[in-house]
Simulated assay, not measured.
Amino acid sequence: MQLVGFGILLMCLLMFSGCEEKTQEAMPLKKKQEFLENLTLQANNGEVLVINQKRQEKGEFALLESKPSILENLSITSGMRNIKILVFFTTWCDPCKGILPHLDNLKNQFGDKIAFFGIPIDDLVGDVENFKGAVQVFNVENLLNMPLILDENRTELFKALGGIEGVPLIALYGENGEYIIHYLGAIPEEMIEFDLTQNLEQKGL
C-alpha cells in the first residue's frame, strides 16, 4: 500500500516538473527593470539605434509596471529618418518563423521608409549553449533578411522591459523616435501594413 502511494506521489512530482519547464520556456522570466538613457544597440549591418526612456513628471504614476507602457515610453532613433521596427524573437518559436515572409513583403512594399531590426532573445529567456550559432542556423534556414542586434546591450533593454510576455513581439517607432504601436504574436500582415500606411500618410511621406 505504501509503495502504491509513493508511486502516485512520484508521478505527480514528475508531471509538475514537466509543466514547470514548459511554462518557463513559453513565458520569459521577469527581469529587474532599469532606466534607459542613450542606450545604443548596434546591428550587424553597422547601423546604430539609440534608445531613451522618457522620465516621469513629478506626481505622475510610474509607467514601469506594464509592458505596453514601457514600450510606449521609449524613444528609438537612428541615423536614418524612417520607421524603425523592432522584432523580438527566439529561434525555437514557430510563429516567429511564420511571420518572416510577411515582414519581407512589407519591406519590399515600403522600401527605405521602414527598417526592420531583429532582436533574438534566446539567451535572455533560458540557457543556450551556443547562442550566436543557433541564430546563424536560424538565419540560414529561414533566409532572414533583416539586420540583427546581437550585442550585449540587448540585456539592458530586456531588463528595462522587465522581460516580455511572448514572441514574436513587434514594436514600431516613427522617424523622430516616437512610439507608434506594438503587436504581440503572429498578426496579419495587413494590420501592420495599415498602421504603416496611416503613419506615413500623416507625415506626408
Rank of each mutant, 00 (worst) to 15 (best):
F89D: 00
N130C: 04
G79M: 04
I76C: 09
N38F: 06
R55F: 07
L49G: 09
G111T: 01
E34I: 15
S69P: 04
Q136N: 07
L10G: 11
L71G: 01
I181C: 02
K32H: 06
E193Y: 10
T197G: 05
N176G: 12
F88M: 13
T90I: 03
G166M: 00
V167G: 01
L106Y: 05
K30S: 15
Q56Y: 10
G18I: 13
G5Q: 09
F158L: 14
E178F: 03
T155H: 08
K32D: 15
P101Y: 06
M146H: 07
L148C: 04
A171G: 05
G177P: 07
G46K: 07
H182P: 00
S17Y: 15
Q2F: 15
K84W: 05
G204V: 06
G204L: 06
T77S: 09
N44F: 13
L41W: 01
G204M: 08
L13I: 14
L49E: 06
F131L: 13
M80G: 02
F88P: 05
K54W: 07
G174N: 02
L9K: 02
T23I: 07
C93A: 01
L196W: 06
K67W: 10
L39S: 08
D195T: 12
L172Y: 11
L172G: 06
F158V: 04
D122A: 04
L205T: 00
L150P: 00
E141K: 07
G111D: 13
G7A: 15
L143R: 14
F116Y: 08
D104L: 14
I119A: 07
K84P: 02
S78E: 04
Q53N: 10
G111Y: 13
G98W: 01
F16R: 14
G59K: 15
L36A: 11
Q109K: 13
L106T: 10
K22W: 09
A186W: 02
I70K: 11
N130M: 07
K97A: 11
F61H: 12
N82K: 09
I180N: 06
P147A: 08
Q42N: 12
K67M: 15
A186R: 01
L64V: 05
N142L: 12
L148R: 08
V4N: 09
Q109E: 15
T77C: 11
M80E: 12
L39G: 05
P28M: 09
C19V: 14
M1K: 04
W92Q: 04
D195P: 01
I192R: 02
L63H: 13
Q202L: 14
F138D: 05
A115I: 08
D104E: 15
S69T: 08
I121R: 03
K97W: 02
I114C: 05
V4F: 15
Q53I: 02
E72Q: 15
C93W: 04
G79F: 01
L184D: 04
P68G: 11
L49Y: 02
L9Y: 04
D94P: 09
K58L: 10
E156V: 08
T91R: 02
G166S: 04
I119Y: 06
N153M: 11
L124G: 03
E37M: 13
C93I: 03
E129F: 07
V48E: 13
D112V: 01
Q202T: 08
K159H: 14
G46Y: 02
E190C: 00
H102K: 11
R55D: 08
E129A: 12
N45Q: 08
L172T: 06
A115D: 03
G98R: 03
T155W: 04
K203Q: 15
E193G: 09
